[in-house]
């Protein structure tokens, strides 16, 4: 190996090490700054307690619950629509229409989150307020609907991918037996694409959990355990954005890093789940 060859190889390797150090560094920073809480013996009290600063209780459980409810609502609302849309795009629509729709969905991934939030405030919030009477219109439902729209392109593209991977011969075999498009899709493609669909749902959940702007702008941000979908709620992400202005050593401030760690762990678990379901081979197939 010549000298320049050696240098470039280790140059690339150094870049890879720096990149790989980033997720570790994020974890370490969160852990270090959250350290006082992690070691104070109040970890479980903080993770599982209520948020009540007046009584010195800084539990983030309401935010964790809010995050989960919102993400699950959004993905649940998006799922049937995305599945149908993906079925049309990759299977049921004639070629050019399918390709056009696929392009539209890809472009949708480019719509800025803050735009969804902005339109949500001035369009969806008044609508919800009027349609369901009373309240401010800032609610779990409002945020979940917008969030569903936000995560849809991600989910559709993943579904389309997994439908596309279903072996063509199976479909042809089914078609040869006289199966209609609908039957082919429901009895051949859908069962075969099971893993891909699960991966799409997990990825959608990840995006929904990690989104800040829509929750912050539309969910109302009340710290309480929501009773129903018209209640206001606060997510972990919105909590971080709202509390950041407080002074450096306050107990409220310390909980931020616990929120960050919780989000970190949740999204990492989802990534592991996605890798597991897709059985991603470590190397090229």
């Amino acid at each position: 190996m010549t000298r320049s060859e050696f240098l470039t190889k280790y140059g690339f390797m150094a870049a890879a090490i720096i990149s790989a150090a980033v997720p570790l560094a994020i974890f370490i920073f969160m852990a270090l700054l959250g350290y006082p809480i992690l070691t104070s013996g109040r970890l479980f009290g903080t993770l599982l307690g209520a948020w009540d600063p007046i009584h010195q209780s800084y539990g983030i459980l309401p935010m964790i619950i809010g995050t989960f409810i919102l993400a699950i609502l959004a993905v649940a609302a998006a799922f049937p629509v995305c599945l149908g849309c993906a079925a049309l795009v990759s299977d049921a629509a004639p070629g050019p229409v399918g390709r056009f729709l696929h392009g539209v969905v890809r472009m949708m991934t480019g719509i800025p989150t803050v735009v969804y939030g902005f339109v949500g405030i001035f369009l969806l919030v008044p609508l919800i307020r009027e349609a369901f009477g009373g309240g401010s219109g800032f609610s779990l439902l409002t945020a979940a609907l917008m969030l569903a729209l936000l995560v849809s392109p991600t989910m559709i593209l993943l579904f389309c991918d997994s439908f596309g991977r279903v072996t063509h011969t199976y479909r042809q075999a089914a078609a040869a037996l006289g199966a209609t498009t609908a039957q082919q899709f429901l009895f051949v493609v859908l069962p075969q694409a099971r893993n891909g669909i699960l991966a799409g749902v997990l990825l959608g959940l990840g995006r929904a959990l990690g989104d800040t702007l829509i929750a912050l702008m539309l969910a109302g941000n009340a710290v309480a355990f929501p009773d129903h979908v018209f209640d206001s709620a606060r997510t972990l992400t919105a909590h971080i954005a709202l509390i950041i202005a407080a002074d450096f050593d306050s107990p409220e401030f310390r909980t931020l890093f616990l929120c960050g760690l919780t989000l970190y762990v949740l999204t990492t678990l989802l990534v592991l789940g996605v890798r597991l379901t897709m059985r991603l081979p470590g190397r090229r197939p």
Partner: peptide, 15 residues
């Protein structure tokens, strides 16, 4: 890199 790609942007901001 998968973990990094899945990181919520608010966590990156907090970092």
């Amino acid at each position: 890199f998968d973990i990094l790609a899945g990181m919520p942007s608010i966590v990156v901001g907090l970092f």
